[in-house]
């Protein structure tokens, strides 16, 4: 370096820039951390939860539809509520034949024209041998949901189970009023479970 000082300007062009000793500062990383925190907040607030169908900054779910019929909304709610049933009947609705848990997909008990039997089963459960798709299941594990679930919830779940095209079911939707009617009519049963013969006798 001492050589450079003595030389006049033109000599500079012959030498290359060098690097000083030491260096290294922490402040860029501290600053980065601070800005990064702000950035996380910004993305959290305006990033639409990284969803492909959220275009509006500030929203986190796809917008609800104005012209969606109530049964479609009920079906969508039911899809979320079905999680409670999926433990036994499985998310694919096929049940667990090995554990004697009957399927809901393609079950003649589910997609009857009238939803009454399905509502009755959800309200009070069923015990004893039951034949679904020519296979007989016998499992006393199902619990009555009369006290656990409201009319709305039962209607939503029944709508989802009956109308789930992915399972091959395409029966009509269920309204809370239908559930309420059956709940009131079977008030006396309490938490007593149905027998298959009794169910078939009613309807």
């Amino acid at each position: 370096m001492s050589k450079n000082k003595k030389q006049p300007a033109p000599e500079r062009a012959e030498t290359e820039p060098t690097i000083a000793a030491g260096g290294g500062s922490a402040w860029p990383f501290v600053l980065l951390g601070v800005v990064l925190f702000g950035c996380f907040l910004h993305v959290e607030n305006t990033g639409g939860a990284f969803r492909a169908d959220v275009f509006q900054a500030g929203m986190k779910n796809s917008p609800p539809q104005a012209d969606e019929p109530p049964e479609v909304k009920s079906y969508k709610r039911g899809a979320r509520l079905y999680d409670a049933c999926a433990g036994c009947h499985q998310p694919n609705g096929l049940g667990q034949p090995a554990q004697n848990i009957p399927p809901l997909a393609g079950s003649e008990w589910v997609f009857r024209e009238k939803p009454d039997r399905l509502i009755r089963i959800i309200l009070n459960a069923v015990e004893g041998p039951i034949t679904v798709n020519k296979v007989t299941y016998d499992n006393p594990a199902m619990t009555p949901f009369r006290d656990a679930l409201s009319d709305d919830v039962i209607a939503d779940i029944a709508t989802f189970i009956r109308g789930n095209a992915g399972w091959g079911n395409s029966a009509g939707f269920v309204t809370p009023d239908q559930v309420k009617a059956i709940r009131d009519a079977t008030e006396k049963m309490g938490t007593q479970k149905w027998r298959v013969e009794t169910l078939q006798a009613i309807d």
Binding site: V35, G47, A57
Partner: peptide, 24 residues
Amino acid sequence: APVPAWIPAVSGAANALVIVPVVA
């Protein structure tokens, strides 16, 4: 504009973040 909201959000954050290396 017509892209999912996360793209402008992430990119806007990067616009601010890039100040740090440039200033350094």
